[in-house]
């Protein structure tokens, strides 16, 4: 199985997104690097709007992810409620 990954700028807003990712992807690994946070997971990762909103305590939409996004690896699928990353093995 290959790892999908996403890297976000290390800032306040990202911390909530990372928390949400950890909650929705319990097996994921979070790696803190200079100025950025990289999260990896085997095969699949999901970022859910609802969980992020819950962590932030305010409305948040999926495209807002782009503001803090540095890079990602995997096939992307985005709709109003979630963004998923997957690799086919």
């Amino acid at each position: 199985m290959s790892k999908v990954y996403i890297a976000l700028q290390d800032n306040e807003e990202s911390h909530y997104i990372v928390e949400a990712i950890e909650e929705d992807n319990p097996d994921s690994t979070v790696i803190y690097q200079p100025a950025m946070i990289r999260i990896e997971n085997e095969g699949r990762m999901v970022i859910k709007r609802e969980t992020v909103e819950d962590k932030m305590g305010r409305d948040w939409e999926i495209p807002a992810l782009h503001v803090n996004l540095i890079t990602l690896g995997g096939n992307v699928d985005e709709d109003d409620d979630e963004l998923t990353l997957t690799w086919n093995d």
Binding site: Q9, A35, M36, H66, V67, N68, L69, I70, T71, L72, V76
Partner: peptide, 13 residues
């Protein structure tokens, strides 16, 4: 760099 790279994720895709 990071601001450019935030577009990069879209370009990669």
């Amino acid at each position: 760099g990071f601001s450019a790279q935030s577009d990069e994720a879209r370009h990669m895709t």
